[in-house]
Design a protein around this nucleic acid. Structure first.
Lengths: 214, 214, 214, 214
DNA sequence: GATGAATGAGGGTTCATTCAT
DNA sequence: TATGAATGAACCCTCATTCAT
C-alpha cells in the first residue's frame, strides 16, 4: 500500500479534483475548505496536500484539465460533424457554446478565479506545464477548424474560443441583478434580467457573424 | 471634529471608499484587509466601521455608486452628443466602452465579486436601495437612447449596457493567459493573447451590429 | 443651558439609569451597549459618560439605589402593617418576597453581576458611598423589625433580607433548565422545572420557620 | 502524535477544560480569553477550537460534565452511607452541600452563566445531549433516595438538589458585601457579612426540615 | 453641558499548511 | 503513502472610552 502505481496515484488525484469540482458547482472558492474537500473525498486532509501542494493548485488543475477535456471533446465532435461551410461552423460553435454553459459552467466560473486568486499561490511550473498542454490542444482545435474552413485562419480560430468563454464568463457576473442572495428583490427590475444561456448564444452568434460574415 | 455635517460625513466615507477602490486596482478582495484600508486612509480601523457596517458593504457601495456615476456621465455625454442615427449611436457606445475599460476597470472587476462574495455579507437593505437607484439611472439612460433613436426600444437599450459590461468583464477573466502573475511565460502562446480594450470593442461592435443592424 | 441645577442633573442621570434598567429587564449586561443606552435615552453617547464614569458604574448605581428604594418602601409598608407577632412578620416577609420577585427582578439579577463583573471597573469611592447608605437603610429596617418583634434581634433581621435575595437570586440561575434559549427542549425534564416565585417563597418560608420558629 | 485514540483525545479535551475551570476559579467568563486558556494549557489557540467549537461550549461542558460527576459521586457516597431515616438523609445532604461548596464552587458559579451567557452561543445539540445525560443521573440519584427513604418521593428528591444549588448560588452572589474587589471596606458592615458555607448549610437545613419534617 | 466622531485594544474564530507517526 | 492533530497568522468586527468642538 506504500507504493502506488502511477495509475493509482492519478486516480486518487482525480477523485480529489472531482470532489472539488462538484463542490465548486454549488459554492464559491472561499467557501470551500480543504477540510470539506477531504471529508467529501473520504480522504484525510493531509492526503489532499500529498496530491496538490496548495488549495489554489487544485482549482488551477481543474481549470486547465477541464478545458483540455472540453477542447478534446470539441475536436472529436468537430471531426464527426464533417462540416465544410461557415454557416455549418457557426451552427456547430453555437451548439458547442450551449454545451459549455449547460454542462461545464464551473469551467467558466473558474476563469474568474484564475488571475486574481489562483495565480497568487498556484505552482508556477505546474501551471505553465498545464497551460502549454492546453495551448497545444487549443492549437489542434484551431488547426482542425482551419483545415475544414480554410477561410478561417488558425489565429482567428483560436480567438473564437477565447471569446466564447469570455462572453459566457462575463454574463455569469452580470446575472441575478434582480435578486439578492438568490431571493428576488421586491421591486420590478425586469430590464436587468438576463439569461446566461440565451444571451451568451445570442452574443456569440452576433460575434461570429461579425467576425466570419454570414 | 465632533459634529460633522452630512456633507463632511459623505466626504470621509468617500475617502475610505476611494482608498478601497485604489487598492482593488492592484489586489484582490481577499488580499485587502480592513486594517490596510484604514491605514492607507489615515484613519483608525474602527472609523472604517463607523462608515461601513461590513467589509462587503464597502465594495458593494463601490460597485453601485461607481456604476451610477458612470451611467450619469454617459447620460450627460449622450445629451451633448446630439446623435440621431444608429451608426452614430454605435459609435458613441463603442467610445463609451473604451472609456469604461480605460478609466473604470475596477467597476468591471467588481461585478465578479458581487454575487458570490459580496451579497453574502452586504446589507440587504442598502444593496437593494442602491440597486433601485442604479436601476432608475439605467432606465433613464435607456429612455434617452430610445428618445434619440426610436427604433431602439427601452428594453433593448437597457440590455445593451449589460452586455457591454459582460463582454469587458469576461475578457478580463480571459486575459493574461500568456503570463503568470504578470510575468510572461517563456513559451510562445501568442494565440492566447487578447487585448481587453480592443477585443471588447470589437466584440461589442459585432454585438451591436447584430442587434441593431448596420 | 450650560449650567444645570443639581435637580436637573439628577433627573438626567435618573433618565439614563432607568433606561439601563429597562434594558436589563430584557437583556444581559454584555448585550447592552452604551450606545444603545444612549440612543434609547435620546442622549449622546458622551452624555452617558458625563453622568457615569464607566458602564459598570451605571449598573452598580442601579443595584445600590434600587435596593435602597426597595428597603425604604419595605420600611414604609412595615410601619403601616403594625404587626407584632412572628407569624405576622413571616407573613409580611413572604408577601414582601413576592413583591421583590414580581416587581424588582432586575435587582436580583444585578446581584449576580456585582462581584464578578461590576466591581472590577466600578468606582470604588462611589460604590462604598452607596453601600454605606444602603447599609444604613438596611439597619433601619432591621431595627424597625427588632422594635416590632423584640425576639428578632437586629443582626438576625439584617440577615433575613440577605437570605431573601440569595434565595431568589439562586433560583433564577437554576431556572429554565428544561429549555434552551427560551425554546423548550424536546425531552421530558419535568423534574428540572422550578417556579422562581413559588419556590423562592417556599424556601424562604422554610428558612424563616427554621430561623424564627413557628 | 498524529492519530489519537478516543481516550487520548478525551484527555486533551479534559486538559483544556480543566485549565478553563481553574481560570474560572479566579476570573469571570469575560476576563478569560481563549488565548489565555490556550497558553495556560500549553497548546495553540487553534487546538482549543479543535476540541470545542466555541468558547461557550467549553464552559457549558464544564457545567454539564461537572455536575454529572458531582451527582455520580453523590450516588456512590449515598450507596455507601446505607442510611434509612430522614435525619440520616438530612445529615448526608448537609455534608454533601459542604462538599459542593468547598470543592466545587465553580460549578455553582457556572449556573449563573448558563442562561444569560452560554446558551446564546453554545451548541444546542451538545447541550441538550449533555443535559439529558445529567437528567438521567439526577433521576438515578432521586430514585436512590426514594428507595432508601420511601417517604421522599422521586420528584421531591430531584427538587432537593436543585434547591441545594440555588441556595449556594444565591449566597455567592450576596457574599463579600463588606469588601470591594476583595479588599475590605473601611467601614463597619458586619451585618452584611455572610459565610457562603455556613449560611448555605443553615438555609438548606431549614429548607430540608420544612420539606421533610424533623 | 452636550455632542458624536475617532480611536484601537482586544475579542473569537477560521483554515491552509506542516509533520510526526 | 496516509493520517489528522497541532499550529498560529490573519481575519473581521465590537465597543467602552476620549476629547475637540
Amino acid at each position: 500500500m506504500n507504493i502506488k502505481t502511477a495509475d493509482e496515484k492519478q486516480r486518487k488525484q482525480a477523485l480529489i479534483a472531482e470532489t472539488a469540482l462538484k463542490m465548486f458547482e454549488e459554492n464559491d472558492f472561499y467557501d470551500i475548505s480543504i477540510n470539506a474537500i477531504a471529508q467529501r473525498s473520504n480522504v484525510a486532509k493531509g492526503t489532499v496536500f500529498n496530491y496538490f501542494k496548495t488549495k489554489e493548485n487544485i482549482f488551477m488543475h481543474l481549470l486547465l484539465v477541464g478545458y483540455q477535456e472540453f477542447f478534446l471533446q470539441t475536436i472529436n465532435q468537430l471531426i464527426q460533424a464533417k462540416l465544410t461551410t461557415i454557416p455549418e461552423l457557426k451552427s456547430f460553435l453555437l451548439s458547442n457554446t450551449r454545451d459549455l454553459i449547460e454542462n461545464h459552467l464551473t469551467l467558466i466560473k473558474l476563469n474568474a478565479l484564475r488571475g486574481p486568486v489562483l495565480e497568487g499561490k498556484a505552482s508556477r511550473e505546474e501551471t505553465i506545464e498545464g497551460r502549454k498542454k492546453l495551448y497545444e490542444v487549443h492549437e489542434q482545435l484551431a488547426e482542425l477548424i482551419n483545415s475544414l474552413c480554410p477561410s478561417v485562419d488558425v489565429k482567428t480560430a483560436n480567438k473564437i474560443f477565447i471569446i466564447q468563454s469570455s462572453i459566457a464568463s462575463g454574463l455569469i457576473n452580470l446575472s441575478n441583478l434582480d435578486s439578492f442572495n438568490q431571493e428576488p428583490i421586491p421591486v420590478n427590475m425586469d430590464d436587468f434580467q438576463i439569461s446566461i444561456l440565451n444571451d451568451s448564444v445570442e452574443t456569440f452568434d452576433f460575434y461570429l457573424t461579425g467576425l466570419l460574415g454570414k
